[in-house]
Design a protein around this nucleic acid. Structure first.
Length: 714
RNA sequence: GCCAACGUAGCUCAGUCGGCAGAGCAGCGCACUCGUAAUGCGCAGGUCGUCGGUUCGACUCCGACCGUUGGCUCCA
């Protein structure tokens, strides 16, 4: 019986009988056989020793294909686990998958593995690789598997086995003394693993639950060869150099303070960049028919009760108790303790006796006040507005107890109020309301990082009120805007995700289907590459997320467009249709930068702090060669300032080399060196950040040049 | 919020066994008046994150808290 295999290039290979994937690789070429790590048979990734006994499409995987690299990394995490078991025989393994850029394994050791152990582990990994142990797959039944891992004391593995669905094949992979429960596939032997590196450790909970055991997640990465590994490690180095937190400090863009955790303090230069982004965005939105508004930061909680945030989002909101309560400081506590003690002396005898008895046990003013309020019903009734909230903390209510306010975490609720402010006509739709208001979200302390995750931020936010028929066209417009916004930054578009109806969703299935189709239509009209995230939509509507890639090819989710059927219903929004009937609009939430803070963080790293002229906080620095030319340098600076150029002047007593060095480190796009020659001819010697010395030109010529380059980019 | 590590001058980082707090850069002053990535000399700079405990004595050991970082969870 002959077997016909189709290769990826379409060519056909015939074999006399069943063959392994490895044999197919060998029949194609010795080089391929050597590089082969696994194979794909009819789209399924399998081990090289898998026997193929029928006609199929086959592709041999090496570390060049993403699928091959994934197999390599998966095997590498086994290699690491084996090394850890050799060094810590009592170590227990949990789970160890490959990831997008490496792998990790959750391991329980006592004490936990630390980065100091990496060198030893890597060395042992190298030894095991050198032993070139064959990696073999075995299929076990459930009981055999359970007995095997039971005997090895791998209690987490027993749990994994128990969670494998009934009927699924249970397989283990064996290399030397090491056996791991694994679906596979894997590389043929440990010798195929040559280029790997351990990177970090972090705590991880068993099954991701804080109540469970704390495991150590050891992360590492692996590549097909040492060169690729080095390139990746260099990329990590480069990313570290570009870290927006470091550049933010070095370039004096923003700062943080422990008294404002999660909130950036924008320094003059950072504020200039921020403001530039903001102005560009406002201008674009104006041209696109958006109406910008300015709305309160503080609302009574009633607004959020209507919007649903009070119920669903309260934990993430900052609540402001109006003027209703104040916590007493020590002197006030002493005051109140004294005042109430005086009054207590005039109480009825039976009450006073009890209070006096307890007072004798009390030491501090805080304890005395606590006793007075607890033991005397008369006093605690009279001073109902004073009470002990927790031991030692006294709260004084000063009135208006019902007026609780909250700081807005999103703009949408206030925009609902704007729509509802008067009767709306179909002629006004789509009504586009934009808002760069300040938002606060009380993010978990452990989640905060630089500008990436903050508690205070602004968005280039807008809400579009429209009818259902308008959705496809309007979304297409928004997508057009999104592309336009990223273009000047040089951020590369990768793809979009369309997230569809989740399990728990509001609104009818038909309505969702219509909405999803409208979004899909808009995406296709823009000719964009997209993937569907089934069931990942918000409960109130489907959404589109945009992914971009920066200069280091790192991917970020930035813009988002979400359809919402819930808020219009909650706020009972309506407009008068052409036929005189009343209809409920649909709302589109959309942001393009997303948050200014996060976007700026991405942009800082993307440009490595070397902003293009139109975005640079300082566009020009004029450098005087010596004291004699200070006046001329100042005049040049004035002229540029009058032109609207962000220029400054360095007239310190320092060598020009030192001034250049400093301006270069500050990543200022243009340095204008002025000395005797320039002063005499009314010119400037131009040095650009990228090209270095460009020679002299007249000041007017430079003004023309910088004028063109500083124009806002969209 | 949870786990771990970290917190010393504005920044980057030393600081031995518990015994007087250190460097480079930045800053300030003076001299030099300079032509494309660091001129020289000098001065100043510290509640060693905060509070408490142990000790004759704490930057150092212990505890709590605050903050940062990495991860988890969350969010999207």
């Amino acid at each position: 019986m002959s077997i016909k295999l189709t290769l990826p290039d379409g060519s056909l290979r015939e074999f006399d009988g069943p063959v392994t994937a490895g044999e197919v690789a060998a029949s194609i070429g010795a080089g391929l056989a050597k590089a082969a790590l696994a194979a794909q048979v009819d789209g399924r990734t399998v081990d090289l020793d898998t026997v193929i006994d029928r006609d199929a499409r086959i592709a041999i995987l090496t570390s060049r294909q993403p699928e091959g690299l994934e197999v390599l990394r998966h095997s590498c995490t086994h290699l690491m686990a084996q090394a850890v078991k050799r060094l810590w025989p009592e170590a227990m393994l949990e789970d160890g998958p490959p990831t997008e850029d490496g792998f990790w394994y959750d391991i329980k050791t006592e004490p936990p593995v630390s980065p100091e152990d990496f060198a030893r582990i890597e060395q042992t990994m190298g030894e095991i690789a050198k032993e070139n142990l064959p990696i073999r797959r075995r299929v076990l039944d459930r009981d055999e598997a359970a007995r095997l891992f039971e005997s090895r004391g791998e209690k987490y593995k027993l749990d994994l086995i128990a969670r494998i669905p009934e009927g699924d094949t249970i397989s283990v992979y064996e290399q030397g003394e090491f056996i791991d429960l694994c679906r596979g596939p894997h590389v043929p032997s440990t010798g195929a693993l040559r280029a790997f590196k351990l990177l970090s450790v972090a705590g991880a909970y068993w099954k991701g639950d804080a109540r469970n055991d704390q495991l150590t997640r050891i992360r590492g990465t692996a590549f097909g060869d040492k060169k690729e590994l080095k390139e990746y490690l260099d990329l990590l180095e480069e990313a570290k150099k570009r870290d927006h937190r470091k550049l933010g400090r070095d370039l004096e863009l923003f700062m943080h303070h422990e008294w404002a955790p999660g909130e950036a303090i924008w320094l003059p230069k950072g504020n200039t960049v921020y403001d530039t982004l903001s102005r560009m965005s406002s201008e674009l939105h104006r041209r696109e028919g958006y109406l910008e508004v300015f709305t309160p930061m503080l609302f009574k909680k009633d607004l959020f009760e209507v919007s649903g945030h009070w119920k669903h989002y309260r934990d993430d909101m900052f609540i402001v108790p109006g003027q209703e309560a104040s916590v007493l400081e020590a002197p006030e506590i002493a005051d109140w303790a004294g005042r109430l003690a005086t009054e207590a002396a005039g109480l009825a005898a039976h009450e006073w006796d009890r209070v006096r008895g307890a007072l004798e046990q009390a030491g501090s003013a805080s304890e005395r006040l606590s006793v007075l309020l607890a033991e005397s019903p008369t006093l605690s009734t009279k001073y109902w507005n004073l009470f002990e909230k927790k031991p030692g903390e006294f709260v004084l209510l000063t009135g208006h107890a019902r007026e609780v306010y909250a700081i807005k975490p999103m703009n949408c609720p206030s925009h609902m109020l704007i729509f509802r402010d008067r009767r709306r006509s179909y002629r006004e739709l789509p009504l586009r309301i934009s808002d760069q208001g300040v938002l606060h979200r009380n993010e978990d302390s452990g989640a905060l990082t630089g500008l990436t995750r903050v508690r205070q931020f602004c968005q280039d936010d807008a809400h579009i009120f429209l009818s259902e028929e308008m959705i496809a066209e309007e979304i297409a417009r928004v997508i057009g805007m999104v592309r336009r916004v990223y273009q000047p930054f040089g951020l590369e578009f990768c793809r979009v995700y369309l997230s569809t109806r989740p399990e728990k969703a509001m609104g009818s299935k038909e309505q969702w289907t219509r909405a999803e189709q409208a979004l899909q239509q808009a995406i296709e009209a823009n000719g964009m590459d997209y993937r569907i995230n089934a069931g990942d939509g918000a409960f109130y509507g489907p959404k589109i997320d945009f992914i971009v890639r920066d200069a280091l090819r790192r991917e970020y989710q930035v813009a988002t467009i979400q359809l919402d059927y819930q808020l219009p219903a909650r706020f009972e929004l309506k407009y008068t249709a052409a036929d005189g009937s009343e209809k409920m609009p649909v709302v589109v939430h959309r942001a393009i930068y997303g948050s200014f803070e996060r976007f700026l963080g991405i942009v800082i790293e993307h440009f490595a702090g070397a902003f293009p002229v139109w975005l640079a906080p300082v566009q020009v620095r004029v450098l005087s060669i010596s004291e004699k030319y200070v006046d001329y340098a100042r005049r040049v600076n004035e002229v540029l300032l009058d032109d609207g150029v962000r220029s400054e002047v360095d007239v310190r007593d320092d060598k020009v080399g030192a001034k250049i060095r400093e301006a270069q480190l500050q990543k200022i796009p243009y340095m204008l060196v002025v000395g005797e020659k320039e002063q005499e001819t009314g010119s400037v010697a131009v040095r650009s950040r990228e090209k270095g010395d460009e020679g002299a030109m007249t000041l007017d010529a430079f003004r023309t040049r910088i004028g063109a380059e500083k124009a806002l980019a969209f």
